[in-house]
Amino acid sequence: MKIKEYNRKELKAIFNKGGNIVISPFIVNIQSSLPEVTKSIECLYSDYELITDDTSFTDFYVNICSRLFRWGYKPQARFYTDGRQPFLPLPLSQAFPFFEWGLNWCIAQYINTRLIIHSAVVEKNSQVFIFPGIPGAGKSTLCAALINRGWRLLSDEMAMVDLDNYQVTPIVRPVGLKNESIDIIKSFAPDAVFGKSFLDTSKGTVAHLKPSIKSVEQSTKKGVCRWVIFPEYVPNAKLQLVPISSAESVLKLAGNSFNYNVLGGAGFEALCSLVEKSESFSFTYSCLDEAIMKFNELVEKDGNTHSVYL
């Protein structure tokens, strides 16, 4: 059953014991008695399957909890995975983003059967776009804007590249937005569903955008990377899409990968093959509508992109 088919009381009971959410390709067991965590999951993961039987294989066990004796004084949230606590506690008010960040860490830390690149990934007309970039480059804002104009979300956080066929496996989760980006997307897409805003985190104010039902329903559909775009948001800048060489693209992607060095030669081969089948660009933008228009041009003129370079 989907999460939205349960009422809050049932969800509370399930997550108190631990409930398995299908966040394809993984099954994540989430245990938490914190109301903020349950409420956020109910809002942002409502279209995801919740498995309540014990027969399914669980990839990650995570527990977000708080210690009772600290409730009166600066209450804290703690993140556990497989019974270990890899991070120091955070303020209780940040329990849900802590879950999201912690799950990112689990995947980046333990999944070495695929090459993982820190990037947003979207798709239109079977053409996958990868937007790698350091935090603040504007990849999540771009990603949020695109998925609110009909593009399919594969991931806001990481491109998971299969090592055998170099396809990109989706991992559809809420899009994490920070600071000014939150209001930008709220005004860009007034119908978009947001979770609660979390103030004063280490990243500033953080809010999560709910992925579309279409993206969640197609979360098992892999894609082939066609475009590698290195975005940079520059206020008032003129839109620029500049081709970069494949070799340089490989080096930049390697710098954005979580496990390139762990995979050794297989990672190098996967990166080279991914880039070989794609076209790479650096991209400067300040206006989301212009950016989307440019990407739509790329999709439409696939195979003859030279005419759309700026």
């Binding site: 060489s245 494949s246 070799a247 490989v250 080096l251 050794g264 030669g265 190098f268 081969e269 080279c272 880039v275 070989e276």
Partner: peptide
Amino acid sequence: DNVYLRILEGEYLAYSA
């Protein structure tokens, strides 16, 4: 062993594991 070379668009990329 552990050193790879790939040629992409005429550029030589080398990786040492």
